[in-house]
């Protein structure tokens, strides 16, 4: 399984990278960590004429934390999220979820931008982006645009990125200190893509009722999605056995799992129900 032939460029500025994309069009593919792209090349499922390595493009590797929230540069690697001491407080759900990404060696290479661009329906990073009202920052020939994560993922391995555009980062809104949250996924083995997973959070009002519930799932549709009905079942209620059961059931009906040989649709629905119930229980605990 040897890679097909391609040219390789390592521009040293974003403009230069954008310029290469403009010249080569769809024939050029961006390379960040390469942990999703290289297997595709190995199986010859992709045959780009040019790989544009973003490694030397300055400014893509930063992790920013401020009152507005968290900003992850597109070139931030999973291991850097692990190591960043401030992130655990600034966005515990992010850190917990990213802890489930792949294996040690992959975590040393794989990047935020790469995962967003690859758009695997079971991947954690897109799931967190969608669940947490993330905004994906995209640079193109016409300048920067920001796309709500909810609008970014169009289907399995499909995003709204236009030819010639580069993801430069992801913004996640600020995380209140007392927020309740949980992340749970079910994979056959550690590091595998999950059969399904859920990331969720809510805040409590002064009466102890849940407000602003965000319940997201991965591996349960052709893209990561939030579950409006499940959120409705929690919002305005105490998070107790009844509301948890109602939310979990709503979740199982709301998802739209894909059938594959790993698991039938009915199983994935039931799994979502179990995971949402357990995650809400954990968050409430």
């Amino acid at each position: 399984m040897k890679f097909p032939a391609f040219e390789y460029a390592r521009p040293t500025s974003l403009d230069a990278a954008l310029g290469l994309l403009k010249v080569h069009g769809a024939d050029a593919v961006l390379l960040a960590g390469g942990q999703s792209l290289m297997p595709l090349l190995a199986f010859r499922l992709a045959a780009p004429g040019l790989l544009v390595d973003l490694k030397d493009v300055p400014g893509l590797g930063a992790i920013g934390i401020d009152a507005e929230g968290v900003r992850l540069g597109a070139f931030v690697r999973w291991c850097e999220i692990d190591r960043n001491a401030r992130l655990a407080a600034a966005h515990p759900l992010l850190v917990e979820a990213i802890g489930h990404v792949a294996h040690y060696q992959i975590r040393n290479r794989g990047t935020v931008g790469g995962s967003l661009a690859y758009a695997d329906p079971a991947a954690e990073m897109p799931g967190i982006a969608v669940t947490c009202d993330g905004e994906i920052i995209v640079m193109g020939g016409a300048g920067e645009r920001r796309v709500a994560a909810a609008d970014f993922f169009l289907g399995a391995l499909t995003t709204c990125l236009e030819p010639g555009e580069i993801i430069t980062g992801l913004r996640l809104p600020a995380w209140p200190k007392d927020r309740r949250w949980a992340f749970l996924e079910f994979a056959r083995r550690r590091g595998d893509f999950a059969l399904a997973g859920t990331a969720l959070y809510y805040d409590l009002d002064s009466e102890g009722r849940a407000v602003d519930a965000h319940i997201g799932v991965i591996g349960a549709a052709d893209r990561p999605m939030r579950l409006a009905e499940a959120e409705r079942a929690i919002n305005g209620s105490a998070v107790d056995a009844d509301s948890i059961a109602a939310a979990a059931e709503a979740a199982s009906l709301e998802v739209d799992p894909m059938e594959d040989f790993h698991a039938p649709v009915a199983y994935r629905r039931a799994l979502v129900q179990t995971l949402v119930a357990r995650a809400l229980t954990r968050a409430a605990g």
């Binding site: 390789y8 290289m38 190995a42 390595d53 490694k55 040690y104 060696q105 040393n108 290479r109």
Partner: peptide, 15 residues
């Protein structure tokens, strides 16, 4: 210093 999979990296990336 970081363990990586050498099959998922190009030699040119190691420059």
């Amino acid at each position: 210093g970081a363990a990586v999979r050498a099959c998922l990296m190009l030699a040119v990336q190691a420059h």
